[in-house]
Amino acid sequence: MSATAIPIGESPTRRAVKRFLRHRLAVFGLIIVVAFILVAIFAPLIAPYDPLQTSWTRIRRPPSWAHWMGTDENGRDVLSRVIWGARASMMAGVVSVLGAMILGVPLGLLAGLAGGWVDAVISRIADAMLSVPFLILAIALAAFLGPALENAMLAIAITASPVFARLSRGMALEAKSTDWVEAARALGNPAWRIAFVHVLPNIIPPLLVQATLAIAEAIIAEAALSFLGLGMQPPNPSWGSMLNSSQRFLTQAPWLSIFPGVTIMVVVLAFNLMGDGLRDALDPRAEKT
């Protein structure tokens, strides 16, 4: 590179994007995720039928050219319901994980940077919540809050937050011992500015990886809650509730279970592939060179 032309520097973010794009499976996962997000957003335009439109003349029809995924026990088009169900699942996945981060990350930063009894209290609460299996806690919370999609999302957000609190506490502890945090203090930064302007941007990479993996988990959790009747309420479509109503017809009309089930699997797999790629791309060991 010649000394005369000085381009704007390459940010750490751009370097990570470049590394991510070299990761084929991760890009494949990203494409599927983006596709499902678009499907969720444009569901009313894409869905061939009204997902709530029942018809006594075409009950439990197998897949055909008119109904690609067949029809269910009330004669509703399964494809349209899967497409509309993407809304509930994506919303539940993204919104509940965002909620978990908004709840967990500041608490984790506070615990890590403040230390002392603040850290002890926050860490013990997080440990206690983590000692209960994720789904059990989510089910208990959702049952307590009452059956509705919003409550299911809230339950998932609360249940997933200790993971983020613990992760950001660990990263904050690590950052606290670095020279650049001490430098920030020596410059006269107030504590909140050290936490949010200096430490937070530096711990975004592991949080992002955790978030993609947590979205996959949250989608499964939403499906599970809906399956148990604690999430999306019928007749509104959600992948979990579709699985629930189809189990009675598993032998006579397997397409009712297969399509929502495969869809859940594909989306969760895509998120996991993306998360793995992100982890490789954002690896701090690669960051240094």
């Binding site: 520097g9 940010s11 750490p12 670095t178 020279d179 650049w180 430098a183 920030a184 200096h198 941007p201 530096n202 960051e287």
Partner: peptide
């Protein structure tokens, strides 16, 4: 190498 915030220009 340690005293500058890696995410700040």
């Amino acid at each position: 190498f340690a005293s500058l915030d890696p995410r700040m220009t």
